[in-house]
Structures are given as structure tokens and as C-alpha cells.
Design a protein around this nucleic acid. Structure first.
Lengths: 233, 233
DNA sequence: CATGTTGTTATGTATGCACATAATCGAGTC
DNA sequence: GACTCGATTATGTGCATACATAACAACATG
């Protein structure tokens, strides 16, 4: 084995030794210093290679104790959350958007709970549909916390989706995603032109700004929709 | 603002400037050298901070052109894929497992297609149920490529789930995850004790070894199951 | 005008060194 | 024996420097 001399090379070599069971799960691997010496590169280089492997979950590191091969390499899938418009356009289809309803009302319990807001909070409730080549693609059911985004009250959402407007307007600090399968209700059936009760994939996103909750949105996908992503390992 | 002097500090400062719109979306930010000078640290430190921000999607970097704030900060959710046993035990419940069926048959078209195998391939078909405190938790419908994992043919899967055995036995190179909502079929209804047609969340995983496809598995979750994960941003 | 050639520049990476930090081990003390 | 406290050690990080590489720009040449 010639010296790789790049952190990618080192990483590949370590991956190989793990795959080939040369280093078994749970086993301690050589120290950074030893590896650097063996592979003929600097410790910094080994460090970077191992650091990324650790964040990928392939190895576990603890100061002083050393580095060991993860016992149960817990795979992780990274799901990208693009703009819906981009998602549609990426399939080659023409994107369309229409606002279906708009109202300022207190949130239902499930929304208030998800955002940690009182049920008396003033919120803007929007429903909108996203189209691909004129056909329904996605139904959006959104609640915006007016205390956190006062501008939303006067903004016109008929041309641009709340999705895009919020991204441009409000800095997002953190969020949470929940994926579930739900039966299509009456309202969704009408909007998506689907039989009531059809299993639909729904995504729920809660997002928080630096201080206050910003928005909660439930997205209803069309029947058969799949979220696909590679698994890192 | 005192000099942070750590890459986390630099990162936080950059995040702050982006959040506060001091650097606007699409805008070019100072070069690493300039930032290092301004913040009173080495370029290496700035580089690390920016590198991680780029991989988080908050900024976009190109050689020579420089670094700019991402126009549409594409959030990403990281879904952990733990051992099912661990997932159950993490809820505090007692884990149980039972093999339901076992057969060596050629794969149906959808499985062959997902793995890129001919429909004449020899595969081991297993169905099994995972229990939490004795109640159905998850139905597993698995296909194993016997050409890639010959040992599976003689292995006894009544005690240990294929999930765990494969993880310990076969090195995994890459995989793909697909999430969908499906109506519960007749067989699933019987195994999970759920009404036929109920919307169920299904996960499909295809995994490949260094050379050949290893296994395809479809997991049927109980009604109402949610996959929850934080969104990085 | 089209096209290649050469600089310039910002990011990407490797290296040697120093010190920080956390965890572990073992000696010494009560 | 239990406990405290330091020595040891592996990882974590910062810095200065050097060179690599990609991309853009400006110039030169047919």
C-alpha cells in the first residue's frame, strides 16, 4: 500500500480495513499518531479523515480511550428539503401555484402543541396547492405565527408561496420534521382530486426563529409519492 | 465583538451575520484571508468554519469566485436508521421478534428492479414481525441475494432478526432509502392486526455490498407511526 | 474573430508544531 | 479499602507556511 497522502486516501484506507474486518466492530484501532506514521502522512491528515468517519457514524472516538469501530454502524439518510418550486422544476415539469384559502384564526390544538404556543395565539392560516404541469402535486396547509412574522398579515400570498416568502423574509434557527402516512380527508380529497381515505404521505415541518416559533406546515403528497435518498455508511 | 479564536466562534459569527442580513442571500462574503485578518485568527480556522457551513448548505463556495450566502438555504433532515431492537428498547418497551415465513424463490419484479438483479436470481424471502411489549410494532418483508450472502441459506433466522445478522455479517457499501404511504394489504392486515386498507408508513431499503446487491427490505409501520427528526440549518 | 496561453486569485489541502482538554491509571494518603 | 490528586495519553484544536487546483481574466496569436 503506497502512501495516500490525502485525507480522502486515508479515509478510504480506513474504510477498507473496516469493511474487510481487518478491524472488527467494537475493536480499538491504532492511534492517530501511529496511523500517520504507518501511512506516511501528518497526524492532522489522519485526524481529518477519522473526524469525518466519526461524524458519519462509522467509528466512535473518545479522548484518551482512543478510536474504535462502531458496533452497530447506524446508517443515516439525509433528506434534502428543497423549495417546492425547485422540486417540481427538477422533474422537468412546469410549476404552478394557487392560494386556496386564507384566514386569521387561533390554531387548533395540534398546531399550538407542535409549536409550543397557546391556543389563543393569533395565527394566519393558509392553504395552497402546488401544481406540476397543471396537475395537483402537493397540498400545503400552513400556520404562521403573526407575533413572530407581523409582515405576513398584510402580505399577498396569491402570487408567491408562503414557502418562498418565509425563506426570504425570516431567518430560521431550527426546525423539526415529521413524516407520517395519513388517510386523505374530505378537504384534501377535493383539492388533490383523490378518493377520500387514500393513503397519503404527509410531511410536517415546525420551524423556529431565533426567539419565537415561526410556522407550522403540513404537506400532503399525491398518492404513490416516495421520498428517496441515499444512505450514508 | 472580541476575537472568537475558535472555529466554532468564527462559525457562530458568520451565522449571525447571515441571520441579521448583514450578508444578504446571494451576496459574496469576504475572502478567508480577509475574514481571518478581521477576526484575528488563522485562515485555517476560518476555512474549517466555512467548510462546515458549506456542507450544511448555508453558504456556497467555488474556487476563485469566492464564497456567497446561499440563496435558498436548503434545509436537510438527517434520519437515523437504528437497529429495530434498539428503536423499540429506546421507547422503554420489551422487544420481541418472530419469523413468520421463509422461502427460497425468485424475486418479484419490483425487488429485482430495485436491486438491479435479474428476475431469475436466487433469493431468500423472509417475513418477520417485531414486537414492542408483545404488541405488533413493525412488519418486515425481506429479500436476500443468496449469490452475495451464501451463508443466509443455512442460517437460522428464528432467533435473531435478519436485520441484525446481516449487519454483523455483511459489510455494507451503500444503500438507498425510500419512504412512502401505502394501503395495508391482506397479509399485512393479518400480521399487524390492522384493518385492510389502513394507511401505513413504509420504508424500503436497498443495500449493496462492495460488489453485489445484498438485500431489499420493506418495513411496514403501525398506523400513526411518525418519523421525527431535527432539521439542520 | 476565435482561440489558446498565461497570470491572478480564492479555495483546498498537507505539514510540523504547540497547547488544550478529557479520560484513564496508578500512586499516595486518610 | 475508599478516595484524592496528579501523571499520562489520545484526541481536539489553533497557527504559520507551503503548495495544489480550479476558475476567471486579460492578453497574445493564428
Amino acid at each position: 500500500m503506497t502512501a495516500p497522502n490525502t485525507w480522502q486516501g486515508v479515509q478510504e484506507e480506513v474504510r477498507r480495513r473496516i469493511r474487510s474486518r481487518e478491524w472488527k466492530p467494537g475493536e480499538l484501532i491504532p492511534t492517530e499518531t501511529d496511523l500517520a506514521c504507518e501511512l506516511g502522512c501528518a497526524r492532522t491528515t489522519v485526524n481529518r479523515a477519522l473526524r469525518e468517519l466519526a461524524s458519519a457514524g462509522l467509528i466512535e472516538r473518545r479522548r484518551k480511550s482512543g478510536t474504535r469501530v462502531a458496533r452497530h454502524p447506524t446508517g443515516r439518510a439525509v433528506i434534502e428539503i428543497p423549495l417546492i418550486r425547485r422540486e417540481v422544476e427538477a422533474t422537468g415539469a412546469r410549476y404552478g401555484y394557487a392560494l386556496l384559502s386564507r384566514a386569521t384564526t387561533p390554531p387548533p390544538a395540534r398546531v399550538a402543541y407542535a409549536l409550543g404556543l397557546p391556543e389563543t395565539a393569533r395565527m394566519l392560516h393558509l392553504t395552497a396547492i402546488h401544481l406540476a404541469d397543471g396537475a395537483p402535486y402537493l397540498l400545503e396547509d400552513r400556520w404562521i405565527n403573526l407575533a413572530a412574522v407581523p409582515g405576513a398579515e398584510t402580505h399577498d400570498f396569491t402570487a408567491q408561496s408562503a414557502n418562498e416568502w418565509l425563506l426570504e423574509t425570516v431567518p430560521v434557527a431550527r426546525g423539526e420534521l415529521a413524516i407520517a402516512a395519513r388517510p386523505c380527508g374530505k378537504a384534501e380529497a377535493r383539492a388533490l382530486d383523490v378518493a377520500e381515505g387514500t393513503p397519503l404521505l404527509t410531511l410536517e415541518r415546525s420551524t423556529w426563529g431565533p426567539e419565537a416559533p415561526v410556522t407550522f406546515v403540513r404537506l400532503w403528497h399525491m398518492p404513490g409519492h416516495r421520498i428517496v435518498s441515499p444512505i450514508a455508511g
